[in-house]
Amino acid sequence: MRNILIVARKEIQEGLRNRWVLATTLLLAGLALSLTFLGSAPTGTVGVRALDVVIVSLSSLTIFLVPLIALLISHDAIVGEMERGTMLLLLSYPVARWQVLLGKFVGHLSILAFATLLGYGAAAGALAVTGAEIDAQSWTAFGSMIGSSILLGAAFIAVGYLVSALVRERGTAGGIAIGIWLLFVLIYDMALLGLLVVDQGQTLSGGFLNALLLLNPADAYRLFNLTGSAGVSAFSGMAGVAQNATLNPSVLLAALAAWALVPLGLATLAFSRREL
């Protein structure tokens, strides 16, 4: 346990030093703040549900940005250190490989969580300061949006580690990471949509569709946030979907958690088998 914290601490120290923490926090805060105020300007709805509008726009932002940031930090974690030669020295110390990996995970996730919390928190704070009325239900939805964003980040960090543990070269890891991002964030949904259009609701069952949605962490995240709260789904145009959805929030959360844990376990396995 102590070794995990020692490694995590060093990751955070490095993140602070090479400005990763600063850059991601500023990026998320900047985008969140502009979405918050640009988003509410045209409709003029700085009303009771102002925060719900923000949740919708921020969760769309998260789907694009958080996986990208997570993969950027994580794809290099193992193969990069091996290529630079720092892993050789680290593993000669009294620390197990799974502890190194878990330590990195804790460190990277802390950086991402810090940036998300501060960046999105700034948007909600600014909204509250400008006098928008926000009820408890919206706050809960906002809180679970941040929590699930961090969980989405955890999933993509874990996927990044798995790539990093399997490939031989850093460049390959980078390429695969970008491919994974494109696949889950853009291509998957387009393909799914295409499938639905072609099928015309003839053969594909609802259960099959649900399974397809759970197989993509970004979709699980989207459904969780856009249909999770009645208030939010009204704004997201997902109200129809929300009524039909047979996936309840806890199933979606479990899918996200599985997307974090399974790749992390596989990455640990691949890493421990690797020769230096």
Binding site: N3, I6, K10, Q13, E14, R17, N18, R84, G85, T86, L88, L89, S92, Y93, P94, V95
Partner: peptide, 29 residues
């Protein structure tokens, strides 16, 4: 391993940390 010292042939460290931070990290381990 706690009683073992190793110097690899091409030793490298993370560039972002200072010398004493790096050594403190290894000391903690």
């Amino acid at each position: 391993r706690r009683r073992l010292g190793y110097l690899p042939e091409n030793v490298s460290f993370n560039a972002a940390l200072t010398g004493s931070e790096t050594l403190a990290f290894y000391a903690r381990l």
